[in-house]
Design a protein around this nucleic acid. Sequence first.
DNA 1: CGTGCTTTTGAAAATCATCAAGTATAGTGG
DNA 2: CCACTATACTTGATGATTTTCAAAAGCACG
Lengths: 248, 248
Amino acid sequence: MFHTRPLVVEKSAIEPCSACAARPYSVCSAIDDKDLSRLAALAQIITPAAGRSFIEEGDPAEHFFNITGGTAKLFKLLPDGRRQITGFAGVGHFLGLAVSTTYAFGAEAIEPMRVCRFSRPRLRSLLEDFPALERRLLEVASNELVMAQEQMLLLGRKTARERVASFLIARADGQTPRPAYCTHVSRPSAVWLPMTRSDIADYLGLTIETVSRTFTRLRSERLIETPSPSEVVIRDHAGLERLATGME
Amino acid sequence: MFHTRPLVVEKSAIEPCSACAARPYSVCSAIDDKDLSRLAALAQIITPAAGRSFIEEGDPAEHFFNITGGTAKLFKLLPDGRRQITGFAGVGHFLGLAVSTTYAFGAEAIEPMRVCRFSRPRLRSLLEDFPALERRLLEVASNELVMAQEQMLLLGRKTARERVASFLIARADGQTPRPAYCTHVSRPSAVWLPMTRSDIADYLGLTIETVSRTFTRLRSERLIETPSPSEVVIRDHAGLERLATGME
DNA sequence: CGTGCTTTTGAAAATCATCAAGTATAGTGG
DNA sequence: CCACTATACTTGATGATTTTCAAAAGCACG
């Protein structure tokens, strides 16, 4: 939606990379302060509104993207409209790695976003000069690969309940990391879901209805509470985790 | 199976990298002839027999692997034995990229294999000296990521027929690349399947029975022929491809 | 206070899984 | 060379999870 309104593009010089809140989480952390100006010179900032697409699957891949605010959904489509969301990308996430000349997936903001955009050829030349950046990218790609494999296990072999449980656990762990020594403790934790049921369904390979019914069931089993559709409180983290890993 | 018999490990010096048949397909192509000796010094060759595991999910990740012969299946398991095969790795394939200290997946030979094995810390130091190798690895990882996303679409949103069709098309295209100008021509092409129906099922998120029935149906529809269980002839490549991409 | 959207809930239908049996195929040992 | 066994594959009947179809309830926004 809103495909016709042009994205707002500013010069990144207005707010330098050194002050970027996303820097510690992003690939840019691989670049020293003194070299940041070169990076900044390459960057444009775009601010897609919620619901706005900023990568179209199949389009020529002209840019890399670095998310500095908000969340996007990444997805692939079949000709008849079936959709698979391959991931949700938040602050610090890097997009557009594909070697191909076209994007292998689409991306759409689910919250208002701030995105740093780099032209591919220019970032390529930067990569030549900063091997550390390349190393960081390899690290990022490797991690994504591990997560992709985990998602394949979920999509291919887990039940609806296990999928929803896995999703909630991943969200909870991703948002509120805590020391290892207390992961076994059952305590409530709040999870914020910026995406719709439809997005969750397309991420988990289910339908909206099944996702909704599964939430209802987990609630009736006292594993979670749902103060609002976009807010979930995990009441029994350990139990939900056992469910997620297929242990019951 | 055969977990108790030790893997045969030889010094790679016996057959130098320069003569390696897999080199043009593998990451090693990023290293010049003159530097190959350094690479060779780090490599051990292992030759897992068919059915032999050579990576155990969860084990400390001490090595990288480069496949120079045969095929492996890569998989993840759930505690109750459910299995998701995340990919089949053939000649030139590089394994073990994960940043983590443990392997995120298991690997088992489905044909007799030849595998080049590198100790992680030692390859890391090699990476410092050869940025081209790192660039190549990033390329490989990016491609894998694209394939993983494609597989997520398959597992999350395609029907059993579409999954099997996609699998056969991918096998056919991967094995016998042909010029773009004749991709629309319907002509028979033979596909060799070294893996069992069980492997195919675990790769496509289906059961053995569904895979078998789907093959039978595609045969009755004259889209394929199956001279033997491990051999498929694609009679209508275009038709199968339309099926695979969800166009009918 | 409608209007439109998301979410929830219900009933029916369908795809795919499970259970079960039978048929090939390959390898083994007599 | 041929039974014999083990394994893989195929086919059939039944069943269950999930989807589809349908409608009502909850919420945000103008």
